[in-house]
């Protein structure tokens, strides 16, 4: 359904592959609808947090995985969304339906401004620029305590959009599932579009891109703004869902964690953002349940090294490869 590239050959092979895609998508939908009736409230809440981080992660997939730009300000855009939602609710009593477009507009503006640097600067120097903006954002969120609550942060009201209370876990779940799927579909479509090829060219070979007429600067710029928007919307969802935010959620380490998560999941595929987000949310939880939460950071570092050494493509593409391998070997036996 999402993947157009793989049906490039319309000569026969497209048929069964389409069917398989349909099966996957149907199964996925069934699971999405069944989950709230299987899981306890707390786990449902965690699934919601996963969806939030997945949406932010999708932004990184577009930015880093598709276009090859390293951003250390991703958590800052997440923070902009979160603070707009929380400040709007706490200080001005604004409902979510109003704060969302505001968060969107501010992230668009901020992304469009920081993105200007991406027109000319790439690689590590661009990462440094984003780090600098991230540090400024963190500094401001601590210093401007009248509004942001300083280091203590803010309590945020649960989202309420058009009379529907998303403080209710099942309502929240469906909102997050819907937005998560929408963001995922958007990400797949971007990848498989002409712009997706321009992004890949920008990432893999600037010479190939330019000699095919792709504007590298423009591609970088648009990808950066889209990434910022994904992260901002995710942040907007985050504050209402989690209920309390503080600057720690949005500092350099938060940006690095998001990056680590998508790399572990698989940075070139939208599904990798989901696996990465699930890792970010559930693995610490499981360590906590086992009473060894202090071992989680060690695992995190070691796993990152291991992934880079053994599965540099990330978990999702490795699984896909394994599945495909399984499929063909079974086919051979028949």
């Amino acid at each position: 359904m999402f993947n157009m590239q793989s049906v490039a050959r319309s000569d026969g092979r497209g048929g069964p592959e389409n069917l398989r895609h349909m099966a996957w998508v149907t199964g996925g939908c069934l699971l999405v609808f069944a989950l709230p009736f299987i899981l306890e409230t707390y786990w449902l809440y965690l699934v919601g947090v996963t969806a939030v981080y997945a949406i932010a992660g999708l932004g990184l997939v577009i930015l880093f995985g598709f276009t090859g730009q390293l951003s250390l300000a991703h958590a800052s855009f997440f923070g902009i969304g979160a603070y707009v939602s929380a400040i709007g609710g706490v200080h001005y009593g604004l409902p979510g339906i109003v704060t969302l477009p505001i968060a969107f507009a501010i992230c668009l503006g901020a992304g469009a401004f920081v993105g200007i640097f991406a027109l000319r600067i790439s690689g590590l120097r661009f990462a440094l620029i984003t780090l600098s903006f991230g540090e400024l954002f963190y500094w401001a969120s601590v210093r401007w305590s009248d509004v942001t609550g300083g280091e203590q942060g803010l309590y945020a009201e649960p989202l309420s959009v058009m009379g529907i209370d998303f403080g209710d876990p099942i309502n929240a779940y469906f909102l997050f599932a819907a937005l998560g799927l929408l963001a995922t579909a958007l990400c797949f479509r971007l990848r498989d579009s002409s712009f997706g090829r321009a992004m890949a060219a920008t990432r893999d070979s600037e010479l190939a891109a330019r000699s095919s007429g792709v504007s590298v600067a423009r591609t970088r710029y648009i990808a950066f703004v889209i990434g910022a928007l994904f992260s901002g919307v995710a942040g907007w969802l985050f504050s209402g869902h989690v209920g309390a935010i503080s600057p720690n959620f949005f500092d350099m380490f938060a940006s690095l964690n998001m990056l680590v998560a998508v790399i572990i999941g698989g940075v070139k595929t939208p599904l990798g953002a989901w696996v990465g987000a699930a890792y970010l949310v559930f693995v610490p939880e499981l360590f906590g349940m086992a009473g060894v939460s202090n071992l989680y950071p060690i695992l995190s570092g070691a796993l990152l090294v291991l992934i880079v050494l053994v599965l540099p493509v990330g978990i999702v593409p490795a699984l896909q490869q394994a599945l495909r391998h399984l499929g063909t070997s079974r086919g051979d036996k028949q």
Binding site: L259, G301, L304, V305, V308
Partner: peptide, 26 residues
């Protein structure tokens, strides 16, 4: 790592950084 491809080295040192931090913290 460097044999696998470019870009991964950066991520790997990031992993080492997190690993060392966690060990010392522990």
């Amino acid at each position: 790592v460097t044999k696998i491809g470019s870009g991964f080295d950066l991520i790997a040192t990031l992993g080492v950084m997190m690993f060392l931090t966690a060990i010392v913290e522990l």
